[in-house]
Design a protein around this nucleic acid. Structure first.
Lengths: 234, 234
DNA sequence: TCGAATATAATGTCTAGACATAAAAGCATT
DNA sequence: AATGCTTTTATGTCTAGACATTATATTCGA
């Protein structure tokens, strides 16, 4: 793939900034200067700078010029991957073992954490990595949002990846806490006092709830790792 | 702030896609059609579409046209905020209580988790929210990367926010696991068996290690919550 | 009928201008 | 010295074209 001019300008500027050569707050050359330096039209340097602005690396102020943005990071970003994908990526075998799958009629056994009031599917199971329990999963699926779930075979595939492929969604919320294994100790092959990571996820399609899932990982078997560069800017 | 034409085109397209009105895989109008519809030049619609491409909402293929990208989410994104900011945002008082601060000479007491071999500062302390222990923190700071740290007063400010303001950095890695409080139980005002969330963070400036920190939160006192929309595309 | 050559339609990049807008800097008046 | 006006400068947006690129569609020949 040939490198276009705006990409070249952009990566030139970016490496100056990321290397620390141009410190935060420093003014970068004006569009006019860059035009001359690269013998190109203003739109071309504008495109390059604009891309870095939307990445948060550069701030522009009219009349004053363009400046290297100050990195201002108070938050990090963490990825929560799909369980089966993680296990397979490690080279282990993966299997989902169904403990229970029950259809709940509308208004039966309502759960404050999942606001769907129609028919639901309640699923409990264990993710198994190389024949060892890896995580316990408790899940509720709205049959309004995912009618096909009633006929799916969750002994084969985990409900999570089935949903991912069959039900579109638009928003999710995650919550991560620590808890003891407690009643899940047996299913997880751990003691009741074992410290576990608990990941909860709510998923919606527009305003309609699609699924709620609570996954519990024994602390020694799973950790979440994230690597990232800082976003510059506010 | 006045809405520019390209922003209008962009948000028109975006809402069609996010609403599900245009399903993934569906072809969107050609640039020529959009030009006519909005009575504008091709560059203008190109800018709008280009922005959505870089957001992962649209895929473009030459000759074939532009298409709504298929959402492909196997990973979620979680924010790990600065502790003091979280506590203050809740309306509680915040304070950092120093337990120990020791200067380590080069090659003294090396830690496999932190590869710096020069002089380091080793700090232990507790984050206090409204007079209750909120998290225990163990930190190593490279004095090569942050020479000013030797003179800083960590009884006043937490080392974390001091570093954020005084030492630039370029890369960080996070790891989240669950553990029992164990030896930290007393400092945290919990029992040894209390399940805790452990967040570790490594920070570098270019290739040089800046700081390592391990924060331990009793499970009932902290949870990480993230809300987000799916990234489209690969 | 199949495959290769060709045409075509769409995006990708770029130019050389135009006018708008906002903020800094300078200047003049108080 | 403080205020308000004007000029200047740099970015922000946009136009109407140009040529390049490339995947698809069509046509032609064996």
């Amino acid at each position: 793939m040939t490198v276009t001019l705006d990409q070249r300008i952009r990566s030139d500027l970016e490496s100056r900034i990321r290397s620390g050569d141009w410190a935060p707050g420093r003014r970068i050359p004006t569009e006019r200067e860059l035009m001359e330096q690269y013998h190109c039209a203003r739109m071309t340097v504008g495109k390059a700078i604009g891309a870095l602005v939307s990445e948060g690396l550069i701030e522009r102020r009219k009349k004053a010029g363009s400046f290297v943005a100050r990195p201002q990071v108070r938050t990090a970003v963490l990825e929560i991957p799909d369980i089966a994908a993680v296990i397979l990526a490690r080279g282990e075998t993966y299997r989902f073992e169904l403990i229970a799958c029950r259809r709940l009629a509308a208004d039966e056994d309502l759960d404050a954490r999942f606001s769907d009031t129609g028919d639901r599917l309640a699923i409990d199971g264990v993710h198994i990595a190389s024949d060892r329990p890896f995580a316990h999963e408790h899940r509720l699926i709205s049959l309004d949002a995912a009618p096909g779930a009633a006929d799916a075979d969750f002994g084969e595939r985990s409900p999570g990846s089935w949903l991912l492929d069959n039900v579109p969604w638009t928003v999710a919320r995650h919550r991560i806490t620590a808890r003891q294994a407690g009643d899940l100790a047996t299913a997880l092959g751990a003691t009741r006092a074992t410290a576990c990571l608990q990941v909860e996820r709510w998923t919606w399609r527009q305003a309609d709830p699609v699924t709620y899932v609570r996954q519990v990982f024994p602390g020694d078997r799973y950790d979440l790792v994230a690597e990232f560069s800082p976003r510059h800017g506010p």
